[in-house]
């Protein structure tokens, strides 16, 4: 497998905080690589160093074999970056923006071709200002693809998009992967990370706490499942937490969710408890763990769960 991005003990500090703390990892050619983590975990700083916008304090990184310290300009020629949809001049027309940015690169795709690929043919003479959020996002994506990039960086690609537009964005990302591009995506939405990514890096407090496929990350939780039911309002949170094999309780006024590592045992104990106290377990649902659980578990404690 070919490596297109290689990080070695990469560090970046701002005053006393270490935004990126000795991260070593690699991204393989042709994969969709996710970077997740809470706000302020250092995702953005990390990505910005790879995009050639910031210099690291120590450690090293190469993108497409080019050192980020020495060859930022060459890296910029060969990568694409999806930015927020607002970052285009409102008084420019779609065609003008595409042509202008195409002219900045040594190698560029014909704006017409990209427009056809993204369904922008009819919007060529529209002012950016007049476009809806979804359309702006497409123009933004067209700009990220204008130099036929080998690596595409997507920062929160579906932020602010409605569910339909989000689905379209995901389909688009899968199509881009089929073209052989490597895609690095940061996201808040664990559902998105789980659905899109081949591998996910979980970053917390500047450190890499886990890196694996979504399935492996979820199974690392040791088969934790969730038991969800209607909150009858009789039993207190502490009693639920005291049931066998319960590792966590999500408490809301109308529903209770028990995270259990031995779902059969916990269920039996739950029914026994309900019978003793004279209430019915209703609205019962069993859920598998998801990337959401991985995210909560791994980033709350600030340390990994592997091992």
């Amino acid at each position: 497998m070919q490596t297109v991005i290689q990080l070695d003990q990469l560090c970046k500090r701002y005053g006393n905080t270490t935004a990126v703390d000795h991260i070593t990892m690699q991204v393989n050619k042709g994969e969709i690589f996710g970077i997740v983590g809470p706000n302020g975990a250092g995702k953005t700083t990390l990505i910005e160093m790879l995009e050639g916008l910031r210099l690291p304090d120590s450690g090293s990184a190469t993108v497409l074999g080019l050192d980020i310290r020495k060859h930022a300009m060459e890296i910029k020629q060969r990568i694409g970056v999806l930015l927020q949809a607002t970052s285009m001049p409102e008084k420019a027309k779609v065609r003008e923006v595409l042509q202008m940015f195409a002219s900045l690169y040594h190698k560029s795709t014909d704006p017409k071709e990209i427009s056809a690929f993204l369904g922008l043919e009819d919007k060529q003479n529209a002012f950016i200002k007049s476009l809806s959020g979804g359309w702006k996002q497409r123009v933004s994506l067209a700009l990220a693809l204008i130099n036929d990039p080998e690596i595409l960086f997507l920062d929160e690609p579906s932020m602010g998009l409605d569910p339909n537009a989000r689905k379209e964005m995901w389909d688009m990302i899968h199509r881009l992967k089929k073209d052989g591009r490597t895609i690095v995506v940061t996201t808040h939405y664990m559902e998105e990370a789980e659905y899109l990514c081949d591998r996910i890096a979980v970053i917390s407090h500047g450190k890499l706490v886990a890196l694996d496929t979504p399935q492996k990350l979820i199974s690392m939780l040791g088969g934790t499942k969730r038991i969800s039911f209607k909150n009858a309002g009789v039993t207190g949170k502490e009693s639920f937490a005291g049931l066998p094999f319960v590792v966590d309780v999500e408490w809301e006024t109308d529903t209770v969710k028990l995270h259990s590592s031995q779902i059969d045992e916990t269920l039996q104990a739950l029914f026994r408890l309900a019978a003793e106290e004279g209430w019915m377990v209703s609205g019962l649902r069993l859920e598998d763990a998801s990337m959401n659980d991985v995210f909560t578990e791994m980033t709350a404690s600030g340390k990994g769960i592997a091992g």
Binding site: L53, Q77, L83, L143
Partner: peptide, 10 residues
Amino acid sequence: GILRRYRVSP
């Protein structure tokens, strides 16, 4: 973010 767009371009 327009300036940022220029900064990520060459």
